[in-house]
């Protein structure tokens, strides 16, 4: 016979998990928004890879 009756504990856990999922989803959206803002405002987003490139030299990255 399947167990159909939910204990209060399961309701509580389910609520906790849903809220945590919501928080994680919100965090993903926030990181996406920050990335869009940083990229669209033209900030330098390149990581340093130990190789000299034009954008690292002063006065050469303004086009």
């Amino acid at each position: 016979m399947p167990i159909t009756r939910q204990h209060e504990l399961h309701v509580r856990r389910s609520r906790r998990n849903l809220l945590l999922a919501g928080l994680l989803g919100g965090f993903v959206v926030l990181i996406f928004a920050i990335t869009v803002v940083k990229l669209s405002s033209g900030q330098l987003m390149e990581a340093f890879d130990h190789v000299v490139r034009p954008s690292l030299l002063e006065g050469t990255n303004d086009g």
Binding site: E8, L9, R13, R15, R16, L19, L20
Partner: peptide, 9 residues
């Protein structure tokens, strides 16, 4: 112990 398990709040 189970009854007082933490809520999100």
């Amino acid at each position: 112990k189970f009854i007082v398990e933490a809520d999100f709040d």
